[in-house]
Structure formats: C-alpha cells, structure tokens
Amino acid sequence: MNTQVDVHRDLHSEQGARRAEHPGRSANPLIKVRDLAWLEFEKPDLVRAEAFARAFGFSTVLHTADELHLRGTDTGSPCVIIRRGPHSRFVGPAFAAADKVDVERLASATGTKTRKLPEAIGGVAVDLTDPSGTPVRVAADTHILAELPAQRPHTFNFGHEVRRANTTQRPPCEPARVQRLGHVVLQSTKYMESLNWYLDHFGLIVSDFLYYPGQRERGPTMSFIRCDRGATPADHHTLAMVLGPANRYVHSAYQVCDLDAIAAGGEYLRESGYDRSWGIGRHVQGSQIFDYWRDPDGFMVEHYSDGDMFDNTLEPGWAPLTASGLAQWGPPATKDFLGMAPGREAVRELRSMLTAVRDDNEFGITRLRGLLKVARS
C-alpha cells in the first residue's frame, strides 16, 4: 500500500549541527564585509544585454561602446557591470567593505596591493582570487548613486482584515523594478576550501548547510552565507556556494517589492520573448518568493521578494539537499534550473562530471552518486 510522504518534513533546517560539524563562521576573520556590491560580466553584445536588463527591471547608469552599468532603485553602487568581450562569461563578484581601512588590512594580510577604481565607480579596491579561481574584488569609498523612484508594494486584504476598500487591484504588466542586488550562487569543485576562504577573509557566516542525502557524515555540499552585521539583520544569504563538477556561476538574485511585481514583471518578460527557468514559488532556505529567468546569453537571474533576514545570533541550520526540498510551494524544479535540460550547459556539466572524478578536487565518485540522487529526489 502506498503511503503519502510529506516532502517538506524536516526540510526547514530547524535541526542544528551535530558535535564536531562545521560551525559556519570563522573564529578570527580578517575583515567583515558589509554587503555584496556588484557582479561583473563580459558579453559580446551590450545592446542586447541592455534590452533584457530593462525588461528585467534594471535602470542604466552608463552605456558606452565597451561598458554597461546597471542599477536598482536603492541608493548605492551599480548592481551589475558588463564589459564588452569576445564571448559571454561571468568575471566575478565585488563585495563592499565597511571602509578603506578594511580594504588596506585585507591587502596587507594577503600580500596584495590596493588600487583606485575607474572614475565611473570611484573608490579603492583589492583584487583577490578564491580557491576555485574566481576573481573576487573588495571595494570601499565608491560613488553612491542617489535613490530612484521605487515601485510601491500593493495594499492587501488578508482574510477578514480589510486594508483596501472601494478601490480595485490592477497591477500593470510592466517590468518589475529591481531594488537591489541580493545574492550570487557559485558552484565549486573545491567547495569546503572555498567556503572557509570566504569565512576567514570576509567574516561571512553560514545561515544554512545542506548535505547530500545519506552523506551527512562526509560534510555539507551547499551553504547559504550572510554578512555579519552584528545585531542588524542581514539577508539570509548574500553568497551561496555548492559543490559541483565545475567552477561556475549558477545564478544571481535581485529584490523587487512584492509578489505582484514578480508575477506581472514575469508576464512582461514572457510576452517580450524571454525564457522562464523556474517559478513562481517560495524557497525553503531563505523563504524568498522567487521567479527564475534566462537572459539572452544563458545566464540565470532571479526576481525575489520577502526574504529572511538574520542577525549574527542565529546558528546554521542543517538539512538534506533534494530537488523537492528547494521550494515550499510552486511547480517542481525544472530540468533547466537543475542544469539537466538538453543543451550546451547540460553537455558542459556532463563533461565536467567525467573530468572532475579524475581530478584532485572535492568532487569524487561518491559525491557524483550523491548529486545524481539529488536530481532524482
């Protein structure tokens, strides 16, 4: 007789660490970064990139023959910097330090030098490379862009609680207005080494660990990592890292005001001919309402709202990594989101699997079996 199984039982990470498991933070980090500042890409067609960016909800700060800067409505630096290149690739993330002294301290501790950033950005930075080979920039004193008019959240009637009377609800089918950059997700063949590097260098702390089902004793294979702002709550994750057969960008996420912005903005993207990867749904780790899209160059980007905010008192949660456990509600995770859809990306990932189990990294044959189990869960 078939027994119905609650696929969300024990997936919300209330269970904590066991004895001797990773603590999720560094005892003595070099500095504590304040936020994720921007992401850098190279693309051959900046006109095409800007067209998608505007449909997705960005505003353009700078567009020259060789460079494109995109921003949200919040004050701060641009969210995304795209430079013209021979082919599309993710270059790396830039984190915001609390001040110039932290940049100098990081440079001194790593044997590198600070440098002035171009006038369009301003400030100073130190350029590092994480154990996966991804360039990572830490910047301070950059130019602050003034706040732009933002998309207003809708007023909702919740059950019998009437907040809106004698007026209708008519969300327009238009681009969602991106407020800010929320997080980036990176895949690494040296997941644990890279995780410790980010915690030790930048003072990041883990909100949630995930592990392959049946392999918890081998350690986590994914972590959702937030900035340590003390008693001030920070995004559940600014950086997420996952073990995999290749070092690559997975996706980046951008906050919008509410569910209607996500849904109506998604309709605008669909009617404009762009491809949804997965959504709409609500995540487990982080709780965000999400909707994933592919840009014309194949990069996955996410609209989200209503994400968890944690201060530095919360300890990491632990849960198994399963495809069904990626969302509390919504459609099942798609093959495209999981990297299994037929196409160049799936072929590259398959080739990486065959190569990774032969290379000197953390992704061995046991981990490959675990990953395949995740995709079927």
Rank of each mutant, 00 (worst) to 15 (best):
1 M>F: 12
3 T>H: 15
5 V>Y: 08
9 R>Y: 14
11 L>W: 06
13 S>V: 09
14 E>F: 12
18 R>D: 11
24 G>C: 05
26 S>Y: 11
28 N>L: 15
31 I>E: 10
33 V>C: 05
33 V>I: 15
34 R>G: 13
35 D>T: 02
35 D>V: 00
36 L>A: 07
39 L>D: 09
40 E>P: 05
40 E>W: 00
43 K>V: 13
46 L>Y: 03
47 V>Y: 06
48 R>P: 01
48 R>Q: 14
50 E>A: 13
57 G>K: 09
58 F>T: 12
60 T>G: 05
62 L>W: 04
66 D>K: 09
67 E>Q: 11
71 R>H: 02
71 R>T: 10
73 T>H: 09
75 T>C: 06
80 V>Y: 00
81 I>E: 11
82 I>W: 03
83 R>H: 06
84 R>K: 15
85 G>L: 11
94 A>N: 01
98 A>P: 00
100 K>C: 00
107 A>M: 08
107 A>E: 14
109 A>V: 07
111 G>T: 14
112 T>R: 15
116 K>F: 07
118 P>H: 04
122 G>C: 00
123 G>E: 05
124 V>F: 10
127 D>M: 05
131 P>L: 04
132 S>F: 02
136 V>G: 02
139 A>N: 02
142 T>L: 08
148 L>M: 13
149 P>E: 15
150 A>W: 07
151 Q>S: 12
151 Q>V: 00
152 R>K: 15
156 F>W: 13
163 R>S: 06
167 T>S: 12
179 Q>Y: 06
179 Q>D: 11
188 S>V: 02
188 S>F: 03
192 M>A: 07
194 S>K: 07
196 N>K: 13
196 N>V: 02
203 G>H: 06
209 F>D: 03
212 Y>G: 02
214 G>Y: 03
216 R>W: 03
217 E>W: 05
218 R>W: 07
225 I>N: 14
226 R>Y: 05
227 C>P: 06
230 G>T: 05
235 D>H: 11
238 T>F: 01
240 A>T: 09
241 M>C: 01
252 S>W: 06
252 S>F: 04
253 A>D: 09
253 A>V: 00
255 Q>M: 08
255 Q>D: 07
264 A>N: 04
269 L>D: 07
273 G>I: 03
274 Y>I: 02
276 R>K: 14
280 I>A: 11
282 R>D: 03
283 H>E: 11
292 Y>C: 12
296 P>I: 05
297 D>M: 10
298 G>N: 06
303 H>G: 03
308 D>P: 00
314 L>F: 00
314 L>G: 02
316 P>H: 01
326 L>I: 03
326 L>M: 08
331 P>F: 10
334 T>V: 01
336 D>G: 06
344 R>P: 08
344 R>V: 02
345 E>A: 04
345 E>C: 01
346 A>P: 07
350 L>P: 00
353 M>A: 05
354 L>M: 15
357 V>T: 14
359 D>W: 08
359 D>E: 15
363 F>K: 10
363 F>P: 10
363 F>D: 10
364 G>T: 09
366 T>G: 14
367 R>K: 13
367 R>H: 09
368 L>H: 09
370 G>N: 12
